[in-house]
Amino acid sequence: MNVIGYIKGIIKGIISLIKGMMVTGHYFVHPGKIVTQQYPENRKKLEMFTAFKGEVTMPHNEANEHKCTGCGICEMNCPNGSIEVITKTEVNEEGKKKRAIDKHIYHLDMCTFCELCIKTCPSNALAWGQEFEHAVFDRSKLTKVLNKPGSKLMKGVE
């Protein structure tokens, strides 16, 4: 082994090690670069992006009306059967029999958030909710009914 190469190797090695230590040392003395977010404390400030896929929801207006006609396209398009649409027949003011939803059941525990139900809905009745704290103690709580009790179909939506 030649001596110069040996010493050169040592010096090169030490320089490379010091370079690495400079990087970590830099972050050590710069606490401003800490990126941790303290979650439960910042809950109030925490705002999800508008596109965030939290859960599937059915928006209702002030008069407790939704847009779901109960056509069942979302149920058909769901790849893993997380949506069940239970329909009933209602008689409207004109005396015609019409299909309406009884329950729009959404299984959050089976949902893979593929967005197909929302994309394919012909009347835009479904939307993403920004709720992300889904942890519950009982699995049955993850099965949700999306239409609120007593809600009606919005006028003008067929």
Binding site: A51, F113, E115
Partner: peptide, 12 residues
């Protein structure tokens, strides 16, 4: 990703 696609890992 989250801003545009809605999710961070499995975007579809």
């Amino acid at each position: 990703f989250e801003e545009s696609c809605g999710s961070r890992l499995l975007h579809s």
